[in-house]
Each structure stands twice: as C-alpha cells, then as structure tokens.
Design a protein around this nucleic acid. Sequence first.
DNA 1: CCAAAAGTGTTCAGGCTACACCCATGT
DNA 2: ACATGGGTGTAGCCTGAACACTTTTGG
Lengths: 235, 235
Amino acid sequence: MTGHKRQYTYDYPKADVTVDAVVFGIDRERPELRVLLVRRASAPYAKHYALPGGFIRMGESLERAVRRELREETAITPRYLEQLYTFGDCGRDPRGRVISVAYLALVRMDDHHPIAASDALAVAWHPVGKLPKLAFDHDAIVDWALSRLRAKVRYAPVGFDLLPEEFPLSAVHRLYEIVTGMKFDLSNFRKRLLATGVVVPTGETRTIDRAKATLYRVDQAAYADAHARGFNFEL
Amino acid sequence: MTGHKRQYTYDYPKADVTVDAVVFGIDRERPELRVLLVRRASAPYAKHYALPGGFIRMGESLERAVRRELREETAITPRYLEQLYTFGDCGRDPRGRVISVAYLALVRMDDHHPIAASDALAVAWHPVGKLPKLAFDHDAIVDWALSRLRAKVRYAPVGFDLLPEEFPLSAVHRLYEIVTGMKFDLSNFRKRLLATGVVVPTGETRTIDRAKATLYRVDQAAYADAHARGFNFEL
DNA sequence: CCAAAAGTGTTCAGGCTACACCCATGT
DNA sequence: ACATGGGTGTAGCCTGAACACTTTTGG
C-alpha cells in the first residue's frame, strides 16, 4: 500500500488471475441438470475435463472476461451471470499461483448448442450426477456453484433463466424438484408460483404427452420486482 | 491456458491482487453499527479513510492474507470472516490494475480495541450512517457488505458474533433492528429466537437501567446446526 | 376404456401477528 | 409513585400441507 505508480513496474512475483464459469442448463428431454465442460487440449491436465475459463486481460473487467471466454471457448452467451466465489489457495494450479474468480451462469439449453473452440478438444453438457474427475480444483467449484444455485432458487426467481421462453407450469415444478432434490406438492407449488405474479399465461396451450398444458412466460416487471424483494419457496 | 511453468516467468503485465476487509462492530453504549477504517498515510488517497487490507503474498491463501493484514494494520482478530465479493474493474485503483478480494468480518467491539499500525495514521470505528468519503471504490465495497450482512442476519445466526459472550435478549433484538433497519415486535422476536434453541440462559442476570435482565449465551451445537440448516427471521 | 399428466378445490392444524398485560427497579 | 424496560400470555387470522377430485388425450 506504499509507493507510487513507478513501483508497480518492478519485477516482483505476482499471481495470475483467471475467470471460470460454471454454466448450468436443463435438458428438456430427459429432465436433469447439466454442467458445461470443456476437454482440455494441453497440459496441465491434458484431456481432462474442466470449466470453461481463462486468464483475464488487462483492459477488461472480470465479468467481461468471463463473457469473452465463454464466447470464445463455447460460443455461449449466458442469460444469467453472477459472481460466485474466488478460489485462491496456493496449490490449486501446478503452474504457479493462480487465483480464479468463479462465476455461476444459467442458460436455456435449447438456445445455444455449444461449439468447441480451437484450443479445446470438445465442449459438452454433463449431468451433475455423474461428472468425471475434473482438472484443478474444479470439482470444488462445481460443488460450490450447485449449493449456491440450490439456495438461490428458493429466494430469487433465477430458475426461469434455465427454461425456454414459454413453458408449462409443470416444467417449473420439475425444475425445482431437480435443482433442490426435494419433492413439492404440485397443487400447492402451482398456487404459490401463480401468487407471485412472476409467471403469466401466454394464452396458448401445447399438447405434450397425453395432456394439454397452458403455456406461461415470465412477466419481466414482476420478475425484476421479485429479484429485488425476494421470493419464497420454502414449501 | 496454454504452456508450461516456464511461460509464467515471462514479463507480461499482470494484475495485482489485494484483500480488503469490511469489519463490523456494534457499539454497546450508543447502539449503532460501525465499520473499522484506517486513515491512509501515503498516496494515493493519502489522509483518506480506507478499508484495512493490502497485497497478498505468494505463499498464503486469500483468507490468511486478510487475517494477516487485519492483525498487522489493526491488531484485530475477527470472530466471523467470510469472503464477500471480488472487485476487479479497471479504473478502481489509479496505480494500475488491482483486483481486490473483499471480506466481511464481524467482531465483538469490547474484545478488541484496535491499534493503528505504523503505516497507517489511525484506526477507528465509524458509524455506518455517516461515513466519510472513502479511498478507491471502498464506499461500494462497504455498501455491498452492508447488504450482505442485512440479508445474512435473516437466515444465518451470524449476528451473535457482534455481541459479547453473555447478553440480554434485548441486545439481540436491538441488534436486529439496527442491522436490518426494520422494527420487530419484541414479544414475537423473543419467542422465535428462543424457539431456535441457539441461545440458552446462563442462569445469571444483570441489572441495566432500571430492569433486571436474564443473560443468555450462544449454544455452540445449536449454532452450528442453525448455520447448516438455516434460520428464519422474516418477522 | 384405461393410464398418465394437467389442473382445481377443500379442509384442517398450527404458526404468526397484534396487542394487552404484569413485574421489577431506580429516581 | 411513576416511568422505563424486561418479560409473559392469548385470541384470531391466515396460510400452508395434505389429499381428493375432475378433465383431457393418447394408446
């Protein structure tokens, strides 16, 4: 905390700073929560799966850095993006001191089909239930993100960013059961959800699997409001 | 994300990483929430108030770094310490790219009387209501910490780390009103609080200001439990 | 006609709110 | 004796949980 600009050009050792993103998506067909992983091409941890991310550049903010990395590595633009936690323990990267600012992102899986970038072998969605061993401490980061998502979905309307534009109420119900791992009484869940005013019927209906379902969409004003005031899904 | 160890000794520009702490305390006499600030001795922002903190060292984790800085600059050991947010915008430090990992800390004001270190002009508690203009973007960091504290106090038993070992229930009540800025019905508050089992009577009583008050303390087991499961003070 | 999923309604218990009230003590 | 703050009790409302039930449609 001493000194002037001059001092900062000295060649004393500094940590590297990276950003990593835990991107969640929901598979519409087989209802399960998935994480976006890239297969690493080069050492360390070559051929291991890892979270998309990379080193920050000097002229960009942290959030810009994640967005850029996500675009470059996976061609994905998240609907929801929130800083999660900063992982800075010493041994986490064999190359040296690397501090990683982790982000939590939510996307509609239908919107984006991820495309692998040149420096990654592949990009793919993996069910959170059976993840492979990840590079670095990325397992811990995914765990952290999962806890946050589970908690957050209860008091903020973030869940909808995983769903398509229009959806039947049962999709929300399923989403909440998948994410939290709890059971919710369908009737009561529906009443609560409608009471929040966050979702409104579009007027259209769709027939899926032997039953016609009313379609709903998110009311943006009410969504913003619920975001500010907070929600309640302690059912 | 390419290359081996070698590459990291190259002299390309890197960001600096600092840690900063927002330390809260409650004044027992005049009930108000306070933040611990240091007066900066040197440029930039000489003579401005700032959060205690400083540059991380290569061999220490982020949390160790904050604890060290707090000890060195203010001689304080926090009872509660939690990572808050990482501030990484480009213009936040005139000296160059500095990324700051901010922490939220709670202390019992009675336990520690802060002592100014050599490189700081002074250390002092400032009421959150009337803070001076702070150095860097530290105003924003304090705001962020305040929101977090206000929210967290509702669903986690962290508030008690601001109170002395033994306390009357009215102190907890006052604490919650101060922190959240809301009014709580005393009777119901007391019932709720006791129902959690987190506080238990010590058996002793103290006479303050014309009334004898039963003293309580935190039951550690129940505290840990409440931390895990979560709390509820939506009164 | 049956199975499966959407969607609706009703009851009941218990928790929360609001408010009134008593007690002890220092001045 | 009274003002002040600690502490207790209770009536009523309201909500959430449980569960039964109807409707629609594909096979």
